[in-house]
Amino acid sequence: RLARRGAIHVVDWQHVQGITQNELSMPGQGVAQLLMQFEDLRAADVANAMRELPVKRRMEVALALDDERLADVVQELPDDDQVEMMHYLGVDRGADVLEAMDPDDAADLLGELPETEAESLLRLMDPEDSAPVRRLLEHSPDTAGGLMTTEPVVLSASTTVAEALARARNPDLTPALASLVFVVRPPTATPTGAYLGCVHLQQLLREPPASLVGGIIDKALPKLGPEDSLTAVTRYFATYNLVCGPVVDDEEHLVGAVTVDDVLDHLLPEDWRDQEVAGQ
């Protein structure tokens, strides 16, 4: 039976209690309330909010998040907090979270752990997920090979512009990674077949949907090598006004792409995330 709707009461915000960040972190406030508050926040904002929680509450929230969401949040934490989180989660859940992380971020985290711990986690990961992480760990973290992601947008020359744009619209891609698509000979998984060149997102937007990307390749854009230094990568972005660049090995295989956000992470002071929280 339908009941009569009750009266609606409007309360001044100053009289509302129990849903501010400080109040939610107090004893007696449920994890469910925190999850509701975090639901629409960006991962970086959730990471900052979690760092302000008591350790016990922070870990309770971490356990309640699904692997994908927790992976996004962990990637935004400072190195020390990432290591602490991995130790709390344990190897089984830790491996699941690493699988959900971007390979370059997973490699950075594993690089902060003792070698035996890192290897234990890698062995628990699905081989398909651990393989690109292992390749990244072969490079120094301050080189293009250590900075790059192994999962850029890679296409064959016979891909249509419409298909390329559909790939670039993937919501899981960062704006920087979506700004450039790379064209190769098969296979298209990194390390790919022969690298042919790239196509800029702006160029895709100017072309008819049925056109093939093979006809609009930018072959003149210089490439980065896996051993190029952080300084060289920074100069590359500044010189060519880019936010993403291809990393190609000596055999002309595309092995990944570097984006400007990864460069900034290494150029900023190590405690930049701490400074951000302090300034809130």
Rank of each mutant, 00 (worst) to 15 (best):
A44W: 02
E76W: 00
M50V: 08
V73D: 06
E117Y: 03
D102P: 08
A43I: 09
V61D: 04
D105K: 14
P103M: 05
D67N: 13
L77D: 01
E112H: 09
M101V: 03
L35S: 00
E119C: 00
A62S: 13
L34V: 11
D79P: 03
Q75L: 00
A62K: 04
V74E: 01
D102M: 15
E68T: 12
E117L: 03
G111N: 02
F38Q: 05
E39L: 07
D40L: 10
D92G: 04
D126N: 15
F38N: 04
A44T: 09
E52Q: 14
L89P: 00
P114E: 15
D108Q: 11
L89H: 02
P127W: 11
L63H: 10
G90P: 08
L34S: 08
M85T: 15
H87I: 01
L121W: 00
A64Q: 06
M50A: 05
D66V: 03
R93N: 08
L65R: 09
P78H: 01
D108P: 07
V46Y: 12
V74S: 01
D105G: 08
M85L: 15
V73A: 01
V74H: 05
E117N: 06
A106R: 09
D67Y: 03
T116E: 15
D40E: 13
E52H: 12
L124D: 10
T116D: 15
L89R: 06
P127Q: 05
E99A: 11
S120C: 04
D102E: 15
M86N: 04
A47G: 04
D72P: 02
V46F: 08
Q37S: 13
E112Q: 11
P127H: 04
A49H: 14
R93H: 09
A64S: 14
V91E: 11
T116S: 14
L77W: 02
A43Y: 10
R69T: 12
E60K: 11
A106N: 10
L65Q: 08
R93K: 14
L63C: 02
D108N: 10
L109T: 07
G90N: 07
G94I: 06
E112N: 07
D92M: 07
A62V: 07
D96H: 12
D67T: 13
R58E: 03
D129E: 15
N48G: 14
E76P: 04
L122F: 06
Q37H: 13
L41F: 12
L65M: 15
R57V: 14
L70Y: 08
A43T: 08
D79E: 12
